[in-house]
Simulated scan of single mutants.
Amino acid sequence: MPAKRIIPCLDVKQGRVVKGVQFKDLRDLGHPVDLARRYDAEGADELVFLDIAASLEQRSTRQAWVRAVAHELSIPFTVGGGVSSVDDARGLLRAGADKVAVNTAAALRPALVSELADAFGRQCVVAAVDVKRDADLGWRVVLKGGTEPTDRSALEWLQELNELGAGEILLTSMDRDGTGDGFDLPLLEQATELPIPLIASGGAGLEIHFLEALEHGADAVLAATLFHEGILPIARLKAYLAQNDISVRISHDL
């Protein structure tokens, strides 16, 4: 069985890493290059970099930021934010990204996912999906950094993304984001029925929350505040997961 992955997330705005609760009240948590260097040394399996203002500002991710972060990394690096074309993605890959994440642009023009998979390979395409609980849809897809609700069912959209050629899903529960109350396990139970790798995001507060998400089928778990603020070191989390029979990569240098 493939090892489960631990992934810190850098939400970047105006060149700084920020984090809030349910996508609001953002706090400055440092410089992305400094954090990237730290996570590479601490044994993170991958790093995700999201330019959270790119879609709202109708631009692509700043390639200079990506280049600076990539220079510090020896681990896989996913970059997203404002990717709306094959050319946008190519620029990020040339700047040092290993994978590109698409969200709003893919929802508005689903063919983008297939275009990216055809151009770079399915393994290069991460579909980021932000969702909120909804009485009618179960979970509703939300776009543009959590500011624009849609009429699309999250689970139906995940199925479509799989068929379009996405190589992986980054699924964020906006209801749980930044709360520390744990991942949305009912959401994960349904989402992980699809034959596509899934990264669980939104809600991690304790070691057991990561364990629960992985036991509910997630292939990887993503967090921000816990890692950025040093509340839960990655080495300690991996040791805990290994003690609970979860396969993880543990560096002997840590």
Rank of each mutant, 00 (worst) to 15 (best):
V126H: 07
V126N: 06
A127Y: 03
A127W: 00
V129E: 00
V129P: 03
D130T: 02
D134T: 05
D134R: 05
A135R: 13
A135G: 00
D136I: 12
D136A: 15
L137P: 11
G138R: 08
G138F: 09
W139M: 09
V141C: 10
V141A: 10
V142T: 11
L143D: 14
G145I: 07
G146K: 11
T147P: 05
E148S: 13
E148W: 12
E148F: 12
T150E: 13
D151Y: 00
D151Q: 14
R152L: 15
S153V: 14
A154C: 15
L155Q: 08
W157R: 08
W157V: 10
W157S: 09
Q159W: 00
Q159C: 00
E160A: 14
E160C: 01
L161K: 02
L161I: 09
G165F: 08
G165P: 11
L170W: 06
S173P: 13
S173A: 12
M174Q: 10
D175S: 11
D175M: 12
R176N: 13
D177Q: 04
D177N: 08
D177A: 07
G178P: 09
G178Q: 04
T179V: 03
T179M: 04
T179S: 07
G180E: 07
F183V: 04
F183P: 08
D184P: 09
D184T: 06
L185V: 13
P186Q: 06
P186N: 04
E189W: 04
A191R: 01
E193C: 08
L194F: 10
P197G: 05
L198Y: 01
I199G: 11
I199L: 15
S201R: 11
G202S: 12
A204F: 03
A204C: 11
G205M: 03
L206P: 00
E207I: 00
E207Q: 11
H209E: 03
H209W: 02
F210G: 10
L211Y: 14
L211W: 13
E212Q: 15
L214C: 07
G217A: 01
G217Y: 01
A218W: 02
A218G: 09
A218L: 05
A220S: 15
L222W: 03
